[in-house]
Write a protein that binds this DNA or RNA. Structure first.
Lengths: 356, 356
DNA sequence: CTGAAAGCGCTTACAG
DNA sequence: CTGAAAGCGCTTACAG
């Protein structure tokens, strides 16, 4: 099926011949830190320029056993949080002289074809965003000496490195905020129920509500998906005991839920219903939404991810590392305000209970 | 700086020894269509399984002169149109057994470092979305036998393949729609002024307006950027001759412009101002916006792109090909309706002048 | 600093 | 169908 002929490009031997030096000299010229005299280098560079030579990264990888490629697996890109992450990852990886091989879709089952491809390309590291690895696959990576970092997700056994934020505290903070705002009936629209982010956010929310004597939470399942969140919202808003305070597990869904509330049920936000989201992603900030949201410090999360990877690649030590960052509850207009605790810092309004 | 040791993985020779066959036999087992007896294959497969062998794609590339990697360059991902494209590209490329190497950022200048990397990895094809290549660089690709496809953009000289939609007709259609809607003062917020999409959309819009006797168009520059579009909108809405019909060059900006109109200027849409966008991307469909927009058939565009690439890779013929698709003017609530011409097809409302 | 040589892990004529 | 051998384009001891 591949009948075509790709011209095979200029090689180091051709450059060597042209420059009147050995092939090794050409190689050294393009290897930072290699021992080469200025004069030889100059001859080589001239010949390379004339011929349009570029070292073949594939051949280099074969020798060095380093591809300088990082695989990034993202389950989906509809949620703008992830494109933002991807762009930042690209920026940082390029700075470290690494390339980014992108896979979309999940990696849940064992012996996934996507996983096979990662291994075949001998990637130097793997970043998994919004998805996790089976314990079997992560073991295989460890055996192969390939560092893996989970982004915005963890596994129970802590066996694989991860970068997350304090989701449980975030859930608590949201509950405290809504309680302080004088709400009485609390609702939750969940993400993917088995995900660590969802479990932690909900656990914190429920705990703090329970401590304040609120044991009944109206729950809908959104699976981090717009359509499912909308369906869950419709059902929830049709109930006689419709909540007046609703925590939606991320902004991607919160935006959709807000539209359902306003345009399908005619609810006034935040008068009839307060909505709080998570991530502080683009649309949450748009004037039409103004969603009060727990932020995740995306740039610092990406930085930590690249950091862990680079550290493990250069040290060869693959020990699970867990970086846990903190966000803030960014206060906008989608939820009723408590009397105290909202402060302004650097032009952003933030909820810090105990302060006023 | 790379002190680490990556275990070098199981090789075909190791599998061969274990299976009691030659290394060639192992290779043939993993080469579809190669001549190998079922018995040998079975022995090899068993040994491979035990050892956890996976063919080294890097080594294979070196021989076959095919990396099975396609480079995708996307200038930015903030506009959800592009993440959508990326996800669809990933789906299609994986189906063709290709990998996707992602680069974000522009490729405008000659001898770009990003371009160097593409060449060093000997990618089999390049897709450029929302950015173009200098003529010098595209020549170099042609020389190297690497097919390039511009996605949603063209160059003047037609020298490099492209997939676009009829942007000029789209601009015309929008003008016709707004004229038929009885508007009197027309505005335009542009994309990147040098881009072919922007030029074509505006050219069609202006032509059709001129034909109807409307020669004055109030123009703002948005550069396909939210913040710039907002600034342009503010200036435009402050003018005494504020338009009552506004074409914003894509939905990504239209959403922002709409928020400025409603929340900063208290304009009622579409009563005070009609807004039409382009792309028919996610947020345009959200209830808070409901933007009337020229659609671009994203999936078919991606399909055409992959198609061109696969054709050129397998034939070895790199002749510029241009696929031009059509979209529809999807009618929602952000613009006043004409008396006739809006029809409903498959549950979507579309403007087809001449029909009712 | 430099060159000759070995070798990375494969594919692919070639001969049997 | 099978194996021995050459070779893809590099890096990297090794010896000078």
């Amino acid at each position: 099926m591949d009948g075509g002929v790709k011209k095979s490009g200029v090689t180091s031997s051709q450059v060597a011949r042209r420059a009147g030096v050995s092939q090794s000299a050409v190689s050294r010229t393009f290897t930072p830190g290699a021992s080469i005299s200025p004069k030889t280098r100059e001859k080589v560079m001239a010949a390379a320029q004339e011929l349009g030579y570029r070292p073949n990264a594939i051949a280099r990888s074969l020798i060095t056993n380093r591809s300088r490629i990082i695989a990034v697996v993202m389950a989906y890109l509809e949620n703008l949080f992830y494109p933002d992450v991807l762009e930042e990852l690209g920026r940082l990886l390029v700075k470290e002289n690494y390339r980014l091989l992108l896979f979309t879709g999940h990696m849940d089952r064992d012996s996934d074809p996507v996983f096979d491809q990662l291994m075949q390309y001998r990637v130097d590291g793997i970043i998994l965003a919004s998805t996790t690895l089976s314990s079997h696959l992560s073991e295989e990576c460890a055996t192969a000496g390939i560092p893996v970092v989970l982004f915005n997700r963890t596994t129970e056994r802590d066996a694989v490195s991860s970068v997350t934020t304090r989701n449980r505290e975030g859930g608590r903070r949201i509950a405290e905020f809504l309680i302080a705002g004088g709400h009485r009936r609390f609702g939750y629209i969940s993400g993917v129920e088995s995900s660590s982010t969802n479990r932690d956010r909900f656990a914190g929310y429920r705990e703090a509500l329970a401590e304040a004597g609120h044991d009944d939470i109206v729950i809908g399942v959104g699976n981090y998906d717009r359509a499912e969140a909308e369906a869950a919202a419709r059902e929830m808003f049709s109930r006689p005991d419709r909540p007046d305070a609703l925590f939606v597990a991320n902004d991607h869904m919160a935006v959709a839920v807000m539209d359902v509330a306003r345009y399908e049920f005619g609810l006034s936000i935040p008068n009839d219903l307060s909505i709080v989201g998570y991530d502080d992603v683009g649309p949450a900030r748009w004037a039409s939404y103004g969603i009060t949201s727990m932020s995740q410090p995306m740039k610092r999360m990406v930085e930590a991810t690249v950091n862990i990877l680079m550290g493990q690649i250069s040290s060869g030590e693959i020990e699970a590392e867990h970086r846990i960052l903190s966000g803030d509850l960014i206060v906008r207009t989608s939820a009723r305000l408590p009397k105290t605790g909202v402060v302004e810092i650097d032009g952003r309004r933030i909820y810090k209970p105990g302060k006023s």
